[in-house]
Design a binder for these strands. Sequence first.
DNA 1: TTAATTTCGGATAATTATATCCTGTTTATA
DNA 2: TATAAACAGGATATAATTATCCGAAATTAA
Lengths: 144, 144
Amino acid sequence: MFSKACEYGIKACIFIAINSYDGKRISPRDISKEIASPQAFTAKILQALVKSDIVRSYKGAYGGFEIDKSKLAKIKLAHIVASIDGDQVFSGCGLGLEICNENHPCPVHEKFKKVREDLKFMLENTSLEELALGIKSGEAFLKT
Amino acid sequence: MFSKACEYGIKACIFIAINSYDGKRISPRDISKEIASPQAFTAKILQALVKSDIVRSYKGAYGGFEIDKSKLAKIKLAHIVASIDGDQVFSGCGLGLEICNENHPCPVHEKFKKVREDLKFMLENTSLEELALGIKSGEAFLKT
DNA sequence: TTAATTTCGGATAATTATATCCTGTTTATA
DNA sequence: TATAAACAGGATATAATTATCCGAAATTAA
Ligand code: FES
Ligand code: FES
């Protein structure tokens, strides 16, 4: 469904979000430990998320990654996914036709479109804030 | 969503189905031409589909691939997808946790599960027959 | 200013997915 | 039996994804 990079990216954002609640910056080392991901690879993904303006980074001692508290409710899963995996998952044809539209539909177009739009809706309406709360409350987990 | 191999596999099955209606066997060459896929790669996928007992192959002159007419309504997209991509798409965690269940859910579990099961339902209730009819009637297309 | 810390970014490696090539085996028909 | 047609399957090649390594640049504090 999503690439490994995207999975790591989402989980990293959630963990950064939790720490940002407490005003703490966090390093790729601690992040990859918490989400069970390869450290250097995760760092690359974080760089991309910084460029996409989803997380903020601070170099030097006492630096690390954080997310503006004021953004936590506004950032949706869709932003993270689109930023890492692009928009194929939101609008691409299920059977790989170059373009997906009503005028030149593939055999599964109608049925696939329905599912794809449900996924899109879900991703666009799930905020980083609520996901972070799930972890904070102990209801959900980031690894194993 | 699906691998290239799976996309080709589905499209190949649909085209074989159409021909099987008319009692015609069809070659990998004609299939890959019709669905715009690499020929040798498509042939490999067809081999796998034969082993999965979804399509039948006949060697030698006047040979080729076909699907039992009596099976066309019974074969569902889910069978083809499971046979090529495995069952991760049906039961795997959206964030890559090793196992997906209620006892140890990832942060998106509830929401993702809903979408995943809608997809599962769609794939389990879409037959090769109806997809083939979509192509035969000219409503749908297999390439570009 | 120096030292310690931490992100940034380029280079490279390993793994998996996608794609191609070539030869063998089977089968129908002449 | 000979021949041609067509799938089977191993070996190999290419591309994309995933993962690692290392030095440069920035920042803070002593
Ligand atoms: S054309 Fe295939 S999903 Fe729309
Ligand atoms: S645990 Fe992640 S989707 Fe169920």
